[in-house]
Design a protein around this nucleic acid. Structure first.
Lengths: 156, 156
DNA sequence: GGTGAAAGCTCTTCACA
DNA sequence: TGTGAAGAGCTTTCACC
């Protein structure tokens, strides 16, 4: 259940900032920073989770250590109609696919993939993408260096 | 200190999978799943952190709840020379910028930004990007719908 | 919504294997 | 590297405000 039409107050925002920065921060640490009781913080965190504002918690891993050093963006034109996500869902189901966006303009989809190397990228294209129906064309852009990569939202 | 030239064994990989999936999982829960003592798990997690394989832990927040509903990719051509990250670092310093990649091909940089709306995007372009030196051209692509958005690495 | 006390777990250290 | 025991510290509940 996601309620996004709800206003967050400053305490909620402070909690979100702290947890976005370090998801393993303890309740007690938050409560000390915010000068509240740990039980009050726990209550707010639970509500933020229930409301879908906190979607989950994840560890940020080094791609190189996991042999996933190649990042690429693939622009895909598809014959999917408006509001039809058939091929998008097929892309999303591939573990190496980190993002799938429906974009404005000529290309229909922008897909971000992370794999071991160029060979793995070619195999992914041949074995997975080429089998997805409705694809009209694909254009791949390889990332040479990543300067910043975060999902952090600036909380204002 | 980042040592990426080190081999991870199956226990390390299992820990990384669990923590990537839920960064707030307790040591005890990991130790039960892996049938180890909590102290042994703690030791491994610490080493994964020290080695830079675990870079940190973050909460995954709903952009809509934080009034950051517009996602855009900006392709930027810059006059930066090879190995010169001057403008890339300037992009990375902007809080609304989530990613900065140096890409192969015509465009030099691919920048991912998350803002409130089109007006905020225009302001960001006018007030922040336009003041960064070396920029030759900018092309903005707006995301209409995000089908998948994760940083999860498939651990094999 | 928030507080504070209490019980139950979890974390963390350390001696030992 | 891993285990198990022990103390410290954290989480969670609950009565009360």
């Amino acid at each position: 259940m996601v309620q996004t039409d709800t206003v967050l107050n400053d305490v909620d925002k402070a909690i979100l900032r702290l947890m976005q920065d370090d998801a393993r921060i303890t309740n007690v640490a938050i409560s000390k920073k915010l000068k509240m009781a740990p039980s009050a913080v726990l209550e707010r965190v639970r509500k933020l989770e229930e409301r879908g504002i906190i979607r989950g918690y994840t560890a940020n891993l080094d791609p190189a250590a996991l042999n996933k050093e190649l990042l690429a963006f693939i622009f895909i034109k598809s014959a999917d109609g408006f509001g039809c996500d058939t091929s998008a869902k097929a892309f999303a189901a591939i573990p190496e696919v980190q993002e799938v966006h429906n974009i404005a303009g000529d290309d229909c989809y922008l897909v971000k993939v992370r794999v071991a190397n160029t060979q793995a990228l070619m195999e992914l294209r041949r074995k997975r993408f080429s089998k997805i129906a409705n694809i009209l064309s694909m254009r791949t852009t390889i990332v040479m260096e990543t300067v910043k990569e975060t999902q952090t939202i600036s909380i204002t």
